[in-house]
Amino acid sequence: QKTCLICGDEASGCHYGALTCGSCKVFFKRAAEGKQKYLCASRNDCTIDKFRRKNCPSCRLRKCYEAGMTLGARKL
């Protein structure tokens, strides 16, 4: 079983350049394409896991970029 690099849930494949679950794939697409700016209410070090991935979109998006996700990457 492969694990999502963002939240640790079961990965569905390589999306936008990183091994992710469906939830993180859709989140990244919407967040990266959108005009909304996300700000962390804490210290930009929130725990992003399967159960808390929706708590801080700022840290989740940062983790996506750190994992190498880009909109230009093709699905592998």
Rank of each mutant, 00 (worst) to 15 (best):
Q1E: 15
Q1Y: 15
Q1H: 03
T3F: 10
T3P: 05
T3L: 12
T3E: 07
T3M: 10
T3C: 14
C4Y: 01
C4G: 02
C4K: 01
C4T: 00
C4E: 02
L5I: 11
L5N: 11
L5W: 08
L5H: 07
L5D: 10
L5S: 13
I6Q: 03
I6L: 01
I6E: 02
C7R: 02
C7P: 02
C7V: 00
C7E: 00
C7L: 01
G8K: 08
G8Y: 14
G8Q: 03
G8C: 04
G8A: 13
G8W: 03
G8H: 10
G8T: 04
D9R: 04
D9G: 06
D9K: 03
D9I: 08
D9M: 03
S12V: 12
S12I: 09
S12P: 09
S12D: 12
S12H: 05
S12F: 03
S12G: 11
S12L: 14
G13F: 05
G13Y: 04
G13N: 06
C14F: 09
C14D: 15
C14E: 13
C14L: 13
C14W: 03
C14H: 12
C14R: 07
H15T: 14
H15E: 15
H15Y: 05
H15N: 07
Y16R: 02
Y16W: 08
Y16C: 02
Y16M: 08
Y16D: 04
G17K: 05
G17P: 02
G17S: 04
G17W: 02
A18L: 07
A18V: 11
A18H: 01
A18C: 09
L19N: 10
L19V: 12
L19H: 11
L19K: 12
L19Q: 15
L19F: 11
L19P: 08
T20A: 11
T20N: 03
T20I: 12
T20Q: 01
T20G: 03
C21N: 00
C21H: 02
C21Q: 02
C21V: 01
G22V: 07
G22S: 11
S23H: 12
S23L: 04
S23F: 08
C24I: 00
K25F: 10
K25N: 14
K25D: 12
V26A: 08
V26R: 14
V26Y: 06
V26T: 13
V26N: 15
V26M: 14
F27C: 01
F27W: 03
F27Y: 02
F27K: 01
F27R: 00
K29R: 10
K29S: 05
K29V: 05
K29Y: 07
K29N: 08
K29G: 11
R30K: 15
R30A: 09
R30P: 03
R30L: 15
A31L: 05
A31W: 07
A31E: 09
A32Y: 07
A32L: 07
A32W: 09
A32R: 07
A32V: 12
E33S: 12
E33C: 15
E33Y: 06
E33K: 13
K35R: 13
K35V: 12
K35D: 08
K35Y: 12
Q36A: 12
Q36N: 08
Q36C: 06
K37W: 07
K37L: 08
K37Y: 06
K37F: 04
K37E: 15
K37N: 15
Y38K: 09
Y38C: 04
Y38A: 11
Y38T: 06
Y38P: 13
Y38H: 05
L39R: 13
L39Y: 14
L39T: 12
L39V: 14
L39I: 14
C40P: 01
C40I: 00
C40K: 02
C40S: 02
A41G: 09
A41R: 11
A41Y: 14
A41E: 09
A41M: 06
N44R: 05
N44D: 13
N44A: 10
N44M: 09
N44E: 12
D45H: 06
D45M: 06
D45F: 03
D45W: 03
C46R: 01
C46A: 00
C46D: 03
C46W: 01
C46N: 02
T47G: 09
T47H: 12
T47E: 11
T47Y: 10
T47W: 05
T47I: 12
I48F: 05
I48V: 12
I48G: 04
I48A: 05
D49T: 07
D49H: 04
D49Q: 04
D49P: 03
K50I: 05
K50S: 08
K50Y: 08
K50R: 10
N55A: 15
N55Q: 10
N55E: 03
N55V: 07
N55S: 06
N55M: 15
N55K: 14
N55G: 10
N55R: 10
N55C: 10
C56R: 00
C56W: 00
C56F: 00
C56A: 03
C56P: 01
C56V: 00
P57Q: 09
P57C: 15
P57R: 09
P57D: 15
P57A: 13
P57Y: 12
S58E: 15
S58V: 07
S58D: 12
S58A: 12
K63A: 07
K63W: 03
K63N: 08
K63R: 09
K63D: 04
K63M: 08
C64M: 08
C64P: 01
C64F: 01
C64N: 03
C64Q: 02
Y65W: 11
L71K: 14
G72F: 15
G72D: 15
A73E: 14
A73G: 10
A73K: 06
A73I: 09
A73H: 15
A73D: 12
A73P: 03
A73F: 04
R74Y: 07
R74T: 15
R74N: 11
R74W: 06
R74C: 15
R74K: 05
R74F: 07
